[in-house]
Simulated assay, not measured.
Amino acid sequence: MEFRTLRAFVEVVRQGGFSQAAKTVFTTQSTVSKAVKQLEDEVGVALLERIGHRSVMTAAGEIVYARGVRLLADRADLLAELAEVRGLKRGVLRLGLPPVGSATLFAPLFAIYRQRYPGIDIDLDEHGSLDLEEKLRAGSIDFAGLQLPLAEDFEGQPVRSEPLVALLSSNHALAQRSAVSLEVLGDIPFIVFDDGFSLHRRLMRLARARGLDPVIAAQSSQVDFMVELVAAGLGVTFLPRTIAAHHAHPMVRRIAFEEPELNWSVAMAWRRGAYLSAAAAAWLDLVREIHSGAASSDVSV
C-alpha cells in the first residue's frame, strides 16, 4: 500500500469529492481517481460508492479511512522526527571515556557540544580501555577515548600526546632528581592502574622490555588514592604530565623521564567503517575542529 494512494483516498473523503481533493494534493482529478482505483484494487474491495456527483464511503472505506488518517499522521510525525535528528535538534550521542584524563581532555568538548546541540542526549559510559574496546566493537557506543596505537579495526582522531612522569614521595632518595630512567625505578614497588587500563599494560610492557620485573604494591582506578599512597612512601606511580599537575600533593614530587617513548597518547576512536549518526558525526567534527593539530607524535600540554 502506497502512501500516495492512501492520501488521495483520505483527501477525497475530507474534501467531499475528487475535484477538491485534486486541488489539495496539487494534481489532476483524473490522477486522484486513478489513485483511489489503485487502492481499491489493492485491498480488493470498493471504498467509495458513487451516488450522482457525491462519493460515499462503504463500510470498508470507513475502516480504511480511519486507519489511513492515523497512518498518514504517523508518517508525518516520523518525517518530522527524522528532520529533527538530521537537524541535530534531537538524538543520542553514545560516548565511552576512560576515568583517567577525561575531565581534562573531554569536559571542554562536552561544554561546547551541549551549547551547540542542546537537544542531543549524551549517554556516557566510563570504563577502562579493555571494556571500552569491547563496547566499541559491539556497537554499543559510538566513540571511545583510547590510547594510541589503535587496533586495526578502529579509526581515530588524535587528541593529546604528552610525557609520563614518575611520582615519588618527597622523602625518597631519588625525589630531588630532575629526570630518571625506568631502570632506576625498577627496585621501587609500583603503584599502578588496574590491568583493565591500557596505561597499565603499556607500562608493564616497557618495564619487561628493559628486563624489569617490578613488584606491584597496589592497583587502583582512583588517581587521588594512588597519589596518597605515593605520599605515604608506599612506592612510585606514573601519570601523564597534565594529570599529575592537576593532582599535586605537598608530599609528592613529579620527576620527568629520560626516555621519550614513555608517553601518553590518546585518540577519539570509532569502529572502522561504522555508520555515524548525525549526532555522532557532529561530535567527530567538533573533536577534529578542536584537535586538528594533534598528532600521535606531538608532545604538548
Rank of each mutant, 00 (worst) to 15 (best):
A217G: 11
H249Q: 12
A209C: 08
L199C: 08
T242V: 14
G211F: 13
D195Q: 14
H246A: 12
A209V: 10
L212C: 09
E228I: 00
R201F: 06
S198N: 08
T237S: 14
G233H: 09
S198W: 07
D213P: 03
A244E: 05
A207G: 10
P240C: 08
V227K: 00
G211T: 07
V230F: 11
V227E: 02
F225E: 15
A245Q: 10
L199R: 00
S198E: 12
M204E: 03
T237M: 13
R208V: 14
L199A: 08
R202Y: 06
G211Y: 09
H247G: 03
L229H: 02
L203Q: 00
A248K: 11
M226R: 02
M251H: 15
L199F: 04
A245M: 11
V236F: 04
A207E: 06
A244G: 11
L212W: 00
I243V: 15
L212N: 01
G196K: 07
P250K: 11
L199M: 10
Q222T: 00
D213F: 08
T242N: 08
A231V: 10
L206V: 05
P240I: 05
L203H: 01
A217K: 01
H200W: 10
L239K: 01
P214H: 07
L234E: 08
V215E: 14
L206P: 01
P214K: 08
A245I: 15
F238L: 12
L234F: 08
Q219E: 13
G211R: 08
